[in-house]
Simulated assay, not measured.
Amino acid sequence: MTLIRSARPHELPALVEYPDDPERNAATRGYLDGLLETKCTRPEWCLVAEDGEGRLVGSVVLWTLPGHEVPYAFVLFEAPAGETGVGPALLDAAARTARELGAQELEHVLDSPAQAPQFQREPERRGELLRGSGFRVLRDGRRFGLRVPAELPADDPRLTFRSLTDLGPAPFVDLLEALLAKTSDARLAAEVRTRGARRAAEQLFEQTAELEHEPGWWEIGHDADGTPAVISLPARNPSVHVIGFVGVAPAHRGKGYATSAVIRGTRVLAAHGATEIRGDCDAANTAMAKAFTRAGYENFADRLEFGMAL
């Protein structure tokens, strides 16, 4: 019989360990230790599956951004391939616990190929477990990364950038509303259908603002005719600097400005000490994928984003 329970103090931050996989064990221990330190999770949010002999055979850890008290995602989901009931039981316990803590939805990202710190091996099986427990794919994404070189491309001379410090938030939300009305991003398009372009823009701005950033980092690039052409919202999440969001106004698409916006965000982050930067986009957004590549980024993984209403 399998028991799902909170991890005990002596089981943190190791949780499930694999004797033949020291790289994975070290990476995930370090990852969970960091999550506990930054309060992206709490000990009572770390759930484990214990078999009839007292061994830990699975785990799932609820996650949130620093400063938040309600989880909205989970990480470090581990379920043995040979025990068909363990995975669904862990997912059910995670959803139930998140709901009791006030969450209205729960998300999880599945990266392929497997890599540090979560090493999500057997992505097909993991996806089947998620779908079988009621999760649906919100976005088929592509992940990009850059180790910041000594020299970066120059800013696009066609654009004049002004920051959030100078402009205030209103022009940023206005530009987001305009570009979200014609977006290739599945998640954002779904938000527009549900909430309307204005509320979706406000929500995107608010959610991105929860990431660590300085007002001076966030900018709108204006075309030579004075109209707003691109938006750049670089930031830092709990583990790495990110191109939080970039977008091009519909009237200015087809000019190569997406690449210009990625380069601008990269330069801003590099000027503030970033040595590695990550970014992502929807698989259907081929223009954005090309922009990352042209700005020097490498597509190092694919990412399925799953979600379920609680």
Rank of each mutant, 00 (worst) to 15 (best):
Leu179Arg: 11
Glu177His: 12
Glu212Phe: 10
Glu100His: 13
Ala309Ile: 11
Gly52Ile: 03
Phe205Thr: 09
Glu83Lys: 01
Arg158Tyr: 10
Pro234Met: 07
Leu167Asn: 07
Glu202Met: 13
Lys255Val: 04
Arg143Tyr: 13
Val242Leu: 09
Val61Trp: 03
Gly296Ser: 10
His108Leu: 08
Val262Gly: 08
Glu50Ile: 00
Gly102Asn: 12
Gly254Cys: 09
Asp155Pro: 01
Thr194Ala: 15
Ile243Cys: 13
Thr160Trp: 11
Gly134Cys: 04
Val16Trp: 05
Glu105Thr: 12
Pro66Met: 03
Pro238Val: 02
Arg278Tyr: 15
Ala89Phe: 00
Asn25Pro: 12
Arg29Glu: 11
Asp223Arg: 09
Asp302Asn: 12
Arg139Ser: 11
Pro117Ala: 06
Ala189Asp: 15
Glu50Leu: 00
Leu56Arg: 00
Pro250Arg: 09
Gly141Trp: 03
Phe144Cys: 02
Glu53Ala: 09
Ile243Leu: 15
Ala197Gly: 14
Thr160Asn: 14
Ser133Tyr: 02
Leu15Glu: 04
Pro71Met: 01
Pro149Asp: 11
Leu110Asn: 03
Gln120Lys: 02
Gln115Glu: 14
Leu129Met: 04
Gly256Gln: 02
Glu212Gly: 06
Tyr72His: 14
Ala251Val: 05
Arg99Phe: 06
Ala81Gly: 07
Ser112Tyr: 12
Pro113Phe: 01
Pro88Trp: 05
His108Val: 12
Ala154Ile: 02
Gln207Val: 13
Arg253Glu: 09
Thr38Val: 11
Arg198Asn: 11
Arg199Ala: 15
Ala27Phe: 07
His241Arg: 06
Leu180Asp: 05
Glu219Gln: 14
Asp20Ser: 07
Leu179Gly: 05
Pro123Asn: 04
Gly196Ile: 07
Glu78Thr: 10
Asp223Cys: 07
Ala190Leu: 10
Phe74Arg: 01
Asn285Arg: 08
Trp218Ile: 02
Val86Trp: 01
Thr38Pro: 06
Thr28Trp: 02
Asp21Asn: 11
Leu176Arg: 07
Arg236Lys: 15
Asp140Cys: 03
Ile243Thr: 13
Thr64Pro: 05
Met1Val: 00
Arg199His: 10
Arg199Gln: 14
Ala283Asp: 01
Gly102Pro: 05
Pro215Lys: 04
Arg42Glu: 14
Lys39Gln: 14
Glu11Trp: 08
Leu91Lys: 02
Pro171Thr: 08
Pro250His: 05
Arg294Ala: 15
Glu23His: 12
Ala291Asn: 08
Ala261Asp: 11
Glu107Arg: 14
Tyr297His: 01
Val137Arg: 07
Phe300Thr: 02
Gly127Val: 01
Pro234Cys: 06
Leu304Lys: 03
Ala170Trp: 03
Asp51Ala: 00
Leu269Ala: 05
Gly226Thr: 08
Ser163Val: 07
Pro171His: 12
Asp111Leu: 15
Pro9Ile: 13
